[in-house]
Amino acid sequence: MSENSSNLQIAGREFRSRLLLGTGKFASNELMRDAIAASGSEIVTVALRRADLSGQHDRFANILDFIDAKRVQLLPNTSGAMNADEAVRLAKLARAAGLGNWVKLEIHPDPHYLLPDPIETLKAAEVLVKEGFIVLPYINADPVLAKRLEDAGCATVMPLGSPIGSARGVETRAQIEIIIAQAGIPVVVDAGLGAPSHAAEAMELGADAVLINTAIAVAADPIRMARAFKAAVEAGRDAYEIGLAPRSREAQPTSPLTGFLER
């Protein structure tokens, strides 16, 4: 008997792929387009500051031309925003420019490590949800913040595995486990996953999806690496759904604590 793993559901939409892709850092837009195809990803995030929002079809800012919005869900992100006001303004501008109402909420006041500001993120999420946006906030792996954002009406939470671009894997494992245990909305592990094994690990933990950018974009062969991540995400999800065997199974020769019951 063999079954396919279940679909990912976000805000009432179903996705077969549990791999979200970021589009920065690629050596060319063509390569980015081909990597999206190879990854099988159905949700693709784009930094709004890289895109043309003027509606004038700027050929020097044409990253969106390489993403087929009919085949994938476009997920504009507010990267560059330092506070809630800026993120809200950018999201509204994107919606007005016809980019839809999904938004990956990214607010990082520190432009070097790009770590998310929890206070501004919550503020912006509350406003954007009220304004009718489907909000997917990028957060530090903070379980309480994740619940607050869920209560505010966010569609997912996207805790980081480790800092953006660090390729260190799921270093926030303990907190991610709590977030997954408590979440009533999908949990997408975002940032810091540098190897397919990291992605598989996050999926085995029960994450609903992962988002990968740097590890695919800067790989020597982004297309093959996209395929590698695709396979890892599917493997991790299957393993999670099937259930992994417990780790320690050595036979215990005696039962020091319960032996008395045998007597």
Binding site: F26, A27, S28, N29, L48, R49, R50, A51, D52, L53, D58, F60, A61, G80, A81, M82, E86, R89, L90, L93
Partner: peptide
């Protein structure tokens, strides 16, 4: 491009700093 780099012209939107 020949060296394997994407030339990025726009990396900022005025909406951010408006």
């Amino acid at each position: 491009r020949a060296l394997g780099y994407e030339p990025v012209w726009k990396d900022w939107d005025p909406a951010l700093s408006e």
